[in-house]
Design a binder for these strands. Structure first.
Lengths: 339, 339
DNA sequence: GTGAAAGCGCTAACAA
DNA sequence: TTGTTAGCGCTTTCAC
């Protein structure tokens, strides 16, 4: 900028004024500055500007597990739209599996003075972040509430979704239901399992714990468990899956077997309506997780004052998979038969 | 930092040394600094540090259309892995549809002094970026070569992929093939159409231009075109789709009709092997687009000198969709029958 | 309307 | 090993 000032024959401050398009600058001087800028290839340094003026970095951070997972990608995409509307750049940090990595990434973003942080927690304890919040960096937690910390969060109604799912199966006459969930270290999974238990209790039925499988990591493990459960002397007549990955594994297994056990799985997924066998999903507005969190964050960033909020998004049951009947089918954009 | 120095009773520079963990500092002084840091809630300001030391911002930018699209999400996910390995944060900017927005986003990232830029171009002209490259900001273009600019790029072998696809159909006895591609403003689409034309020419067949449909934007438009083409007096017996979105539309239409026209579509997608009808995809390593580009970018960032490179990734034909036969099926992790 | 000087938070270069 | 000084690129303050 000093060079530009020299070449344009004006003071540093005048260049600054022209570059920022602020205040009134003499037409001719402004043009000399523009000419000199172009000649020298001058580009304003955003960081230096923010440093001196104490203005915000116009940057928020998003901590997320894995963008190649549709669930997280939809959140990130929705967040990006809100960020753009606020003329803010988005730094996306991948936490990986590890809670320590996650903390380290958060601290790095704080050193970079992001205006705020959106966190899809890997789990673990978040009390270490209290100091960062006190320092004035707003945070909103997505999909899981923070542990050991009072902060905003946007989550799903996991309990109700799972209870509805199990109730549907029970009402359809099933009493032996295979339950496949991921690790119970995650509150989401605990809530979903609790929803299923509640549905059984409400129906006056006993849930056979030998049909409850935890730590189901992915589709392949889910397939294996389906085969194991169905080979038992008192096999289940239906399955509940705690997430779409195990749902897909079960779906594949059941389709291969050609048997007609019922299936309800948490999480919808792309092209679920074209799966080769009917099943049901616990659906919710995936993008809303991102949109609402980001809007909440910007309210905090804009210094709006309100008590820590938890937004709970509703779920609904939707039938998916093809029925075997040919003929006009609903388009993806107006998905079918949701309750 | 000044406050920390005062509270710890040491000089500014000593605090700096302790914070950066560099050089040897007396044990006791270091502890006084740590204590003062904790007491005051001191957090190093990364931007100020980079400004003074002239070191890099340890940030790269990724310009991408839409993370909710599997193709882009896989690229972003792969880039994030490489960035993390280089201890670099990733700013993801969504270009939207608009070429002007894209340029504006790039300029913003340049003002932020990112170390480098990864761009999935929306199209349009990129000669305006020459000045930024000259300024020393390396750029790598993904999926499409830059227009009017010599820069690194990583692209697919669109021509060969499409030629292989059409040749497969021709060898299977098809001569009337419906061709559905998106706008020919995109070089990828032009290359794919050219690949199809070449396959016809090599087979000594004429391609009926009335079966070539351009500007097919998505699944719904594709479905409509399928219905139109099949209603004609000389309907096609097979379809080629220029991307997975139109492929999905055609697949849905053909499945609903219950007819057995052949289908080959560019781009694989999740759960394609569970689609209710056989078809074929032109597959490639989606993540490699991100991984290789990012690695190329970091070579540039590390001041390695080499001529502008274009990496072309190969494609292969893979059969997808269920065959109607029950029984053991290949797992997604070892996908079937790829040539 | 324009410019000179001071300083944002930090580190390089040097001195002690 | 520790401290002092100057200054990264920019904006503020205030005088002209």
């Amino acid at each position: 900028m000093t060079d530009v000032a020299r070449v344009a024959g004006v003071s540093l401050k005048t260049v600054s004024r022209v570059v920022n398009g602020v205040a009134t600058v003499d037409q001719e001087l402004a043009e000399r500055v523009h000419a000199a800028s172009a000649e020298l290839g001058f580009r304003a340094n955003f960081a230096a500007s923010a440093l001196r003026s104490g203005s915000s970095t116009a940057t928020i951070g998003l901590l997320i597990k894995d963008l190649s997972n549709e669930f997280y990608a939809n959140i990130a995409s929705a967040v990006a739209v809100v960020a753009k509307a606020h003329h803010t750049q988005l730094i996306t940090a991948h936490s990986g599996e590890n809670a320590e990595d996650e903390l380290e990434a958060i601290f790095d973003l704080c050193r970079r003075r992001v205006d705020g942080l959106l966190i899809v927690p890997t789990g673990g304890d978040h009390s270490a972040l209290k100091s960062e919040i006190d320092l004035g960096i707003p945070m909103v937690f997505i999909d899981r509430k923070p542990v050991g910390l009072a902060a905003d969060s946007v989550v799903l109604d996991n309990f109700a979704g799972a209870r509805d799912a199990a109730t549907r199966l029970i009402n359809d006459g099933h009493s032996r239901i295979g339950i496949l969930v991921d690790t119970l270290n995650m509150a989401t999974m605990r809530d979903r399992l609790q929803g299923v238990r509640t549905a059984f209790a409400e129906a006056g039925l006993a849930l056979d714990d030998s049909l409850v499988v935890t730590n189901v990591r992915g589709p392949i493990e889910a397939s294996i468990e389906v085969d194991r459960l169905l080979a038992s002397s008192a096999p289940p007549t239906a399955f509940f899956c705690g997430n779409n990955r195990s749902g897909i594994g079960v779906l594949r297994s059941l389709w291969q077997r050609g048997t007609n056990e019922a299936l309800v799985s948490f999480d919808d997924f792309q092209l679920s309506e074209l799966m080769p066998r009917p099943f049901t999903v616990v659906r919710y507005d995936n993008r809303a997780l991102g949109t609402i969190s980001a809007e909440l964050l910007f309210r905090r960033i804009n210094r709006e004052v309100f008590d820590p909020t938890t937004v709970v998004l509703p779920t609904e049951l939707c039938d998916r998979g093809i029925t075997g009947l040919r003929g006009p089918q609903p388009q993806a954009s107006q998905r079918a038969r949701c309750t």
